[in-house]
Write a protein that binds this DNA or RNA. Structure first.
Lengths: 339, 339
DNA sequence: GGCCCCTGCTAAAACCATTTAGCAAATGCT
DNA sequence: AGCATTTGCTAAATGGTTTTAGCAGGGGCC
């Protein structure tokens, strides 16, 4: 049963030529002087035998494996991960590469193992991805292949792909204002310490910066800025509920959809109507956002596009430049229609 | 800069032995007769040089690549995918293997390409995963490595890993009854045609079977069975809302958390309290379930455990058997506490 | 005819590890 | 002492591809 795989030598034999000829023809070398007849015979032999090159042998010779590695801290913890992976996978497939996925849990020891495992397999490129955009620890190992930081940054590898949070922040404010909501707006999730860059990611501080600048440019101020550590639904619920004691805001700018989700719960419980009593805008385009009633208007994280661009950068060579990927705007019912 | 990699020959030279000796010692062959001194010298040489075997060379010789392939229809479409991947990844890491992830979108052409790409790379095992448990099309290519069906089945490969939906179904009913909710219960999502096995997955029909059997065993009947095609929140909302016109049920058994989510919305809107007016149980342990207030009691899909077991099966050899993985019960506030 | 160049192809080395077959020296046995 | 066995190790083949170096033959040129 274990019929041996067809090798290049088999193809060459059937074509009546040398393996050299077969190799050159099948790999499509440009400047070879082999006859058209030879080309035809080799291709025919290859297809009739169903020849598939042995990647290991090729890798051994050329140091190229037609594969890349995707090394991330967590793949499952956040529902975003899969967007990054999916985009990267699509990019890899287009480039006829295969993708190794490795998870490190953010532990240095596992990071080292992951990088070594990848390098051992002669990968043609490395993608370091973080589930929350941040400076990532890259193990101090000799890395001799193109490397891209995805949703993360590193002093060592300047090539990164990040969401354009600054513009995203500005857009969120603009959406509110254009919907007629500019007075009595509350920011949910803001945390002064975090904004100082001490505790959360750089990209979140760019989100803040965009929001602040756009507010400033329009001469607006938030009625209140509610802080919390975890941007989870229960925090959104608690903060909103407490805020409602002091009066009903006209709008809520939530720093992510989970906070907004909690806010919805508090608002509904208080008998307030969305968007007529209170309007909301948020960030991330979490799956949740479309499930809510009315749907949550949100500035999405373009994870899939980011994943794809990361792979493209890997293969872009010299002309590769860091990328800021625009965040899409998802208009749903949580904002009143502009009149 | 491109310092050449350390090879086995380098190690052997430093140790003052042959590559044969070095190879045997480093691969830990059992019945070799090399001296303890030789062992020491080789190991020392290897660590001082930082030797790492070239996987391609090894694969070429041994046909083993210390890698497996995870081939799935969709990796990102459902938030469950990542659980399967994560579990498989952990299993692979434990076995010192690396995992290739390939996505096919369920398209036969891409399936073939994926399998060939994997086989070309001498993977030591194949996992076919489907995001919804179902019979999966496996391309008709010679596959000469261990293969496991994950959350899916195939006539060709009997080794599968599936959630134990039958027991899960029974448990859901039991939970309701034990919480004192046995009269006036409505089933949300049931679809007769699907139950006939025509349109949805086999594992869902086992879920139905478990529910039906447990109800029958206790002499109970549903007050109503509400059908819909898509188990999405808006369907849950619509079905529940319509049902409320006819009276308020004591309990809802929802076939997944998204339906339950929609049901929550309808119930809240109608001013009904959970769980005092209406109790709910559901399936999947979607991320949503913990965000709801009160939390949704649900029978979870053990995706991570399933992924891990699939990998283990790959390496289990002869004694590998198909697996039914128990579904965990997540008790939250949507059921009244048993008195 | 002698020389050079071009055309069309191939032999053989290289990549790096594993593994088979086997050699030389030491030991054991009678 | 003589022979067989064990011990401790190595030479060389092997896996499948790419690539360097070069060969044979034909034609052009003077």
């Amino acid at each position: 049963m274990p019929k041996k795989r067809v090798t290049l030598a088999d193809v060459a034999r059937l074509a009546g030529l040398s393996t050299t000829a077969a190799s050159m023809i099948l790999t499509g070398r440009p400047d070879t002087r082999l006859s058209a007849d030879a080309h035809a015979k080799v291709h025919e032999a290859a297809t009739t035998l169903g020849y598939r090159p042995n990647v290991a042998a090729r890798a051994l010779r050329t140091d190229k494996s037609r594969s890349i590695a995707f090394i991330s801290d967590y793949v499952a913890t956040t529902r975003f991960a899969s967007g990054l992976i999916r985009g990267a996978l699509a990019g890899a497939e287009d480039a006829k590469h295969v993708m190794l996925v490795l998870e490190t849990g953010g532990e240095p020891a596992r990071e080292i193992q992951a990088v070594e495992a990848a390098l051992d397999r002669q990968v043609d490129g490395l993608i370091f991805a973080a589930m929350r955009a941040r400076e990532v620890f890259v193990p101090d190992i000799a890395i001799n292949v193109p490397t891209v930081m995805l949703n993360s940054t590193s002093a060592r590898f300047p090539l990164s792909v990040l969401p354009d949070e600054y513009e995203g922040g500005r857009t969120a404010v603009r959406l509110l204002v254009e919907a007629g909501v500019s007075e009595s707006v509350v920011l949910v999730g803001h945390n002064a310490e975090e904004e100082a860059g001490l505790f959360r990611s750089e990209s979140i501080s760019r989100r803040f910066a965009g929001i602040r600048d756009e507010m400033g440019a329009r001469g607006l101020r938030f009625d209140a800025e509610l802080s919390c550590w975890n941007w989870e639904p229960d925090q959104g619920y608690a903060l909103t509920k407490a805020q409602l004691q002091k009066g009903t805001p006209r709008g809520l700018l939530c720093l992510n959809d989970r906070l907004a989700f909690g806010a919805y719960q508090a608002l509904t419980e208080a008998g307030l109507a969305i968007p007529d009593d209170v309007a909301l805008v948020s960030f991330d385009n979490d799956e949740l956002a479309s499930y809510l009633r009315p749907g949550l208007t949100t500035i999405g994280l373009p994870h899939q596009e980011m994943g794809r661009r990361a792979v493209n950068l890997l293969f872009a060579g010299q002309k590769a430049k860091p990328q800021m990927v625009p965040m899409p705007t998802l208009i749903r019912g949580s904002l009143p229609a502009a009149h």
